[in-house]
Design a protein around this nucleic acid. Structure first.
Lengths: 127, 127
DNA sequence: CGGCATCCAAATAGATACTG
DNA sequence: CAGTATCTATTTGGATGCCG
């Protein structure tokens, strides 16, 4: 966040800005929205069944979970496996590519925790 | 992503998972959505005026930009300043708190760039 | 268990015009 | 310049019931 105050951004700066914005925009397209990251996190923690995921990811409905899982599968983040048996067992596994998200998840987790703490302390101090 | 395969997650693991999910959920509540991070990035790069932001953040409408700026202000990420003059000048500045997002932005930028590259190379290889 | 179909309500967003 | 107002179109999501 290094920029000479006041001036309108210069060309090079604007181009760099555009690159960053494009990258973040791409990221948001793939993993944006309320649920995708949460589902990936829950799966990384051993929730591999539809019902388990629905329990762990608070507030998600079956319909939405179903459609999110499909998108995640289409985009190569997870793999859906059907195992024969009685009844058949359906499991979702993280594709190795999902692990590339670790830094993003880590950064958001850390920030989210300190943000929650900040909000909490603000509320308790002025009420 | 260390977890004994197959078993349903145990209690401690589930609790940890819930903590992480809560944190990420809080983060998404504050900075989720298509635009908030993009606006913060554009501002960090020297776009401090309404019109500049609208130009830099491709695809955002005046109405949406206006409401996003209000939310960002309410949540303490930015400050709106009115300077007397003819006409008055309105500027948006990042509040120092926004800088705590640097790691998140950095991680998303990096991931978004490599993701874009992956998509691009996939497309060119099977068409 | 792991969903899909349907219906309906609500949130979101685009277009356009207008204002101090 | 920095927005607001209005209206409409589209997306999204919850609830419910059903199915193999």
């Amino acid at each position: 966040m290094e920029h000479t105050e006041g001036q309108p951004a210069n060309k090079a700066f604007t181009e760099d800005c555009t690159k960053v914005l494009n990258a973040v925009s791409d990221a948001l397209y793939a993993i944006g929205g309320k649920w995708k990251l949460m589902i990936i996190i829950a799966m990384a923690r051993g929730n591999n069944r539809f019902t388990d995921l629905q329990k762990q990811v608070t507030g998600i409905s079956a319909r939405v979970l179903s459609s999110e899982l499909k998108e995640l599968e289409m985009n190569g983040f997870i793999v859906r496996t059907v195992t024969a048996g009685y009844p058949v067992t359906i499991e979702y596994q993280l594709h190795p590519y999902s692990h590339t998200l670790e830094k993003v998840v880590g950064a958001m987790t850390e920030w989210g925790m300190q943000h929650r703490e900040k909000i909490r302390s603000e509320r308790s101090s002025n009420l």
